[in-house]
Design a protein around this nucleic acid. Structure first.
Lengths: 150, 150
DNA sequence: TTGAATTTAATGTATATACATGCAAATTTG
DNA sequence: CAAATTTGCATGTATATACATTAAATTCAA
């Protein structure tokens, strides 16, 4: 794979900023493609996995749809529909919130927790393998990404 | 925005590799959201813009659909359908390849080139603004991303 | 306290991704 | 050369993103 210029056959970029944006879009696709292969056998999408992780982080405390939305990796995603998909698979429960009937309390089920436990190990191991950096470099990358977003 | 831990309200990560993957997914969403706002008024998606750029890079030499596909940022995208969309907007022309009737020659039109010229300036300027790094840091980020993919 | 504004979730529509499949043309092979 | 394989593209289906709109519940203000 190597340099981005070879990977997408583009000779040069306007400046390092524009190159970084393209490089990030391309690297994102690389990561997501690898992750998809992992999720596929479990009939779960990366986004659904992400929602399950957020719910487990609550330790049993019900979470509203908007709260899930705020914590998702993709802010423009649609937590409402993802929760619906997870409910159909019985990985989450959805109940009307007693104190505010507009809201919906979402909780991960035992079945959801079990699936998460299996998947998480694979994802964590997969991520370590797919990121071909030293520990120090990975830390540098995290700092740069945090700074990039301002 | 700042640190990824605050941005998505996750206290800690398994290791810097797993943190980097999440950080990259999140940063990708940040970039794409900003880019979408730019493309929206021109009724063009980022992916369609990418195809137009690839075609212009050919300097008038017809390009096959599979060649476009190979050079796209998202390898799993569907160049065939994107070309169809662009054709409906008269931004590209599509002709049967004379030497191999399986293939389809795609060329950007004058209208496509004009739109690209306008958009490109805005995208380039937008990218410089949205990446809040020094030149040196942007170069570092590019090196790390290239290395990450191995 | 009632009416306006806001909040929360669901839904509608267009676009794109992910992957399988179909089909015709071209190439390989026996 | 005929049959089998491969290639190039289109298309079908499910999922997700992006964004507008709707409907109901709640809050706020006159």
């Amino acid at each position: 794979m190597g340099k981005i210029e070879e990977a997408i056959q583009q000779k040069e970029f306007k400046d390092p900023y524009n190159k970084a944006v393209v490089n990030l879009l391309f690297t994102h696709s690389y990561l997501v493609t690898a992750q998809n292969a992992l999720f596929k056998p479990h009939d779960l999408s990366p986004e659904q996995y992400n929602v399950l992780r957020i719910l487990r982080g609550q330790n049993g405390v019900p979470t509203t749809v908007s709260s899930i939305q705020e914590r998702m990796l993709n802010k423009m995603s649609n937590a409402s529909r993802l929760v619906e998909k997870l409910k159909m698979k019985e990985l989450v429960k959805r109940e009307e919130c007693p104190t505010d009937r507009r809201q919906v309390d979402v909780v991960i089920t035992e079945k959801g927790l079990e699936l998460l436990q299996i998947l998480e190990k694979q994802v964590e191991e997969g991520n370590r393998e797919i990121v071909r950096l030293t520990l120090e470099e990975a830390n540098q990358l995290n700092d740069l990404l945090d700074k990039l977003r301002g």
